[in-house]
Structures are given as C-alpha cells and as structure tokens.
C-alpha cells in the first residue's frame, strides 16, 4: 500500500526511456517551437505557400504588435476570459455539488447518473443548435455552453474521488467513532481533493475550448470571433495572432492551476 513509504521521492520503475541528461527542461521545451518558427519563416520566405494562406512571421509579428498597441487583442481576450470565468464558476460549482451528491448517496447515483452519463456523451457543440432556439445567441448561450464544458468533468471526477476513498481510512474513522459529518469533513472530502483538482483542470480546459467553439458560431467579440472574422476577411495574420493568444491563455491557466495544486497538496509530494 501507498501508506507505507520507506523513502520519499522514490520514483519507481518507469516505462519511458530515460533521458541521458535532463538539463534545463525549460530550455528543451523551446526547441520545438523555435524549429517550427524557423520552418514557418523558411516556408513563407521561399513562397512554398501563397502569402494569403501563410503570411510571413514578420508580418504576423507586426500585426500582433499593432493589435496589442491598439488594445484590440486585450479587449477580445478580456471578453473571452470574462465569459470563461463566469461560465466555469457556475459549471464547476454545479458539477461539484452534483458529484458530491452522487458520491455520497447511492440513491442519487441510481436516479441521476445514467441520465447524466448520456448527457455527457453529447459533445458540447452538439447542444448549441437547441440552445440557440431556447435562449437565443446572446451571452446566456455562451455561459451555458461554457458551464456545461466544466460541469461534466467536474461532476465525474468528484464522484470518482469520493467513491475511491479507501475503506481502510473509513475504518479508522469508524474506530474513532466519527460522526457522518466528521467522516465527510475529515476523510471523504480531503481524500477526494486530488481527484477534484483533476476535475477542475479538465473542466477549465473544456470551458476554454467550448468558449472558442461557441464564439466561432455566435459572437461579435472575443478571441473566437477574432478567428472567424479574420478568416472571412482573409486576414490570416489576425487568425494566427488570435490562435496564439488562445493557446497562450489556455497554457497559462493550466500552468497556474497546476502550481496551485502542487502548493495545496504538498503532502502528495513523493507519494507513489
């Protein structure tokens, strides 16, 4: 069992090929992007693709600089972020409650889970046509779609986390005469935290990707809108800048969440 750890930080056998020298992981991460950049530059310089399709890096850089200076990119990013923050908060809160309810009560599980799983099978974008008819194409639509993206992974991971709390720990609580509330507060919820965090991370990623999806279809502002608009105008430089912004924001969100997780779960360090 993982409860007995003779040594801390013991990695155990790995399947991956060990890197002979893992110097500067930070630096290695840049090799591929730089290579791609070079390839892009060479491709556009040699005219391998028409300029309307693949603008040169320099051109994209200039566009990015202008869009940052004019505040355009910041504006669209802020619009998108605001939608994600609201939608994610609603979806995550609902998902957490649903996951806790299904995890704690077998009756709720029996009633709700089959329908919920079926509901989860329908891709987020598949809901949009119906939702458009119901709520129109305004802000509400976007918030609902984003919330749905967060709700499903949040509910499922919370549920699994609660159900997977070791009966051995519960027996300790039994021996110490824990009440139902003590069991929940001292064993079940803390035991489910790692899994809940996984839910938060997947939820945020889903929220972000569904945001872009819904903005592509129905919006007049936001990073997704910027993509569609750029494509319609054949401004591929704008499209690429928007793509980079979307990727960057997503990356930063995931990274900071990861750091928060490590900080909160210091106890997990070295646990195999």
């Amino acid at each position: 069992m993982a409860a007995i750890s003779e040594t801390s930080g013991h990695a155990g056998p790995r399947f991956s090929w060990p890197s002979r020298k893992r110097i500067g992981i930070g630096l290695t991460a840049f090799i591929l992007p730089v290579a791609l950049l070079v390839l892009w530059w060479v491709a556009s310089d040699r005219g391998w693709l028409a300029e309307q399709i693949l603008p040169s890096p320099v051109f994209v850089y200039e566009t990015a600089r202008d869009m940052i200076a004019s505040g355009e990119i910041l504006y669209h990013t802020a619009v998108s972020l605001r939608r994600v923050v609201i939608g994610f908060a609603i979806g995550a809160a609902l998902g957490l409650s649903l996951g806790v309810a299904m995890g704690l009560s077998e009756r709720v599980e029996d009633y709700v889970k089959p329908l919920f799983l079926a509901f989860a099978q329908i891709p987020t974008l598949g809901w949009i046509p119906l939702l458009m008819l119901l709520v129109g194409i305004d802000e509400t639509l976007k918030i609902i779609v984003i919330a749905k993206g967060a709700l499903v992974p949040m509910a499922l991971n919370t549920f699994t986390g609660i159900r997977n709390v070791s009966p051995r720990y519960l027996e300790v609580g039994h021996a110490l005469r824990f009440s139902r509330w003590q069991r929940l507060r001292l064993i079940v919820l803390p035991g489910a935290v790692p899994s809940i965090f996984t839910g938060i991370r997947y939820g945020l990623t889903h929220s972000w990707t569904s945001l872009v999806g819904v903005e592509l279809l129905a919006s007049s502002e936001g990073l997704g809108y910027l993509l569609v608009w750029g494509r319609q105008m054949f401004w591929l430089d704008t499209v690429i800048v928007a793509m980079i912004a979307i990727g960057l924001v997503g990356f930063i969100m995931d990274k900071s969440l990861n750091n928060t997780e490590t900080l909160i779960q210091r106890w997990k360090k070295g646990e195999a």
Binding site: A3, R168, E171, L176, L186, I187, P190
Partner: peptide, 17 residues
C-alpha cells in the same frame, strides 16, 4: 467501537493529507 478501546492496524493508515 469505543474510545476506551484503541486499534492499531498493520498499515499505519495515517491520512496522507
């Protein structure tokens, strides 16, 4: 169970968190 009776398990079952 009673608090007058203590129990020690083979795996210490400490809560890792």
């Amino acid at each position: 169970p009673s608090l007058d009776r203590g129990m020690v398990f083979q795996e210490p079952r400490l809560f890792p968190w």
